[in-house]
């Protein structure tokens, strides 16, 4: 069974200027373990799609099942719970809490999951280890480089063992070398079994995925499998 399954998913905004159809009946299935790049120019509906499958927004029509749960029937608390357990977000701007060290940032989703302090610490250290930042656990975001900050954010996304990693332009704020490191990390996580949906407008970044879904005017215009480029080939030293 597919991890993500949308049927005729649509999102319509009623603005003062009139109705805006941001997403127009998208049916898509994403399997466990896949690495999908969602691409398209701005206004294509890819961000709306990401917000919907990320349970940050609710569709105005159609159906959406995430890990067997019918999302459109959930209330705000139900959506929060799903975001907490099933989805790990990675943002372009990292969105780390500046006052809290790396460990504290990674612990954040577990606080809302209700884990005790010791378990949180343990899991957070584990997640930081997985992104190669175990020894930076007590650094604050300001003391870390952009790439390191994004790694902390990825550790935070991983910490509750979600079924889906949802990355929105994760390399948009990074230089190309660091971006490549981050893509290598995503590929590695994918090889270890993580399901990843990556939203980007950058064709280069999109080539790292196994599957490419292109949006235009709220619809899917292209959906194909591809042979991903391996980030390790581009920057062998980064994968170390």
């Amino acid at each position: 069974m597919a991890l993500i399954e949308t049927r005729d998913l649509s999102r319509v905004y009623d603005l003062d200027a009139g109705r805006v159809v941001a997403l127009d009946g998208v049916s898509l299935a994403i399997d466990q373990g896949d690495f999908v790049a969602v691409m398209g120019p701005s206004g294509s509906g890819k961000s709306t799609f990401m917000n919907l499958i990320g349970c940050l927004d609710r569709p105005t029509g159609g159906h959406y099942r995430l890990a067997g749960t019918a999302v459109e029937s959930l209330n705000a608390d139900g959506l929060a719970r799903l975001r907490n357990r099933e989805i790990g977000f990675v943002f372009q701007q990292f969105n780390l809490l500046p006052r809290v060290d790396a460990l504290g940032n990674v612990e954040l989703p577990m606080i809302y999951a209700g884990f005790d302090r010791r378990t949180r610490r343990e899991h957070a250290l584990q997640a930081l280890g997985r992104v190669g930042l175990a020894e930076r656990a007590h650094h604050r975001p300001m003391q870390l480089s952009g790439g390191q900050q994004q790694r902390v954010a990825i550790a935070r996304a991983l910490v509750n063992s979600p079924s889906l990693l949802l990355a929105d332009e994760p390399t948009g704020a990074l230089d190309s070398r660091t971006a490549n490191e981050i893509m290598a990390l995503f590929q590695e996580l994918n090889r270890e079994g993580a399901t990843i949906v990556l939203v980007t407008h950058d064709a280069e970044v999109g080539r790292h995925a196994q599957r490419l879904v292109r949006f235009r005017d709220g619809r899917v215009t292209e959906d194909r499998r591809q042979t991903p480029i391996d980030a390790r080939d581009l920057a062998p030293e980064a994968a170390e």
């Binding site: 990320g54 940050l56 705000a76 608390d77 929060a80 719970r81 975001r83 907490n84 357990r85 977000f89 943002f91 701007q93 969105n95 809490l97 954040l108 989703p109 809302y112 999951a113 935070r156 509750n160």
Partner: peptide
């Protein structure tokens, strides 16, 4: 505001 947005994204309920 961004912090609030992030907390909501990682699973905070409005009442949290």
């Amino acid at each position: 505001t961004r912090e609030i947005g992030l907390r909501l994204a990682v699973g905070a309920r409005p009442r949290d």
